[in-house]
Amino acid sequence: MSNEETLLASDLPLSEPQREILRTLIGSIIPASRDYGAPGADDPLIFKDILVTARSYTDMFEAGLEDIDQQAIRDHDGVGFAALSETDRRAMAEHLSRTLNPFLRTLVSITAQCYYRDDRVMQTLGMEPRPPFPKGFTIEEGDWTLLEPVRRRGKLYRDVDG
């Protein structure tokens, strides 16, 4: 059993080939970073989160991924998107990023939503991997003497009488 089969419930959306296109695509959007020690969006845990979140957009995803795959096949002598060379995949991703259609906007949104709530990603940003509530955060009070120029200028509101 592969890692993916271990991770994915049987009722996840999309066919296996479509999932492979999706995995490749989101890995092109946010790849892993050695410099920042950050996983890519195609990390198994994040990918599963994306698949689950995308459930309510299954029709849109099926059509959008099929379009991208057909585009790759047309432009690269029958080679589908997931099988493109790294150079060709990067070039195609660059093109897609400049022509965001409704599917790609939704995909980017879901990818960002799932990626930036992953514990490991939050930690690379210096965040504690936790929800805001109940601990909350600390905000510095700030320097209220900054208001002195405003006080000196005096009344601003408009009189209505006379």
């Binding site: 092109s28 946010i30 790849p31 660059e94 939503q113 930036y116 709530r117 939050m122």
Partner: peptide, 18 residues
């Protein structure tokens, strides 16, 4: 963090890729 990503990606300030 998510809103930051979407603001940047939809305005072209944060690219896809490395």
């Amino acid at each position: 963090p998510v809103a930051t990503a979407l603001t940047g990606m939809f305005s072209g300030r944060i690219p896809w890729g490395e």
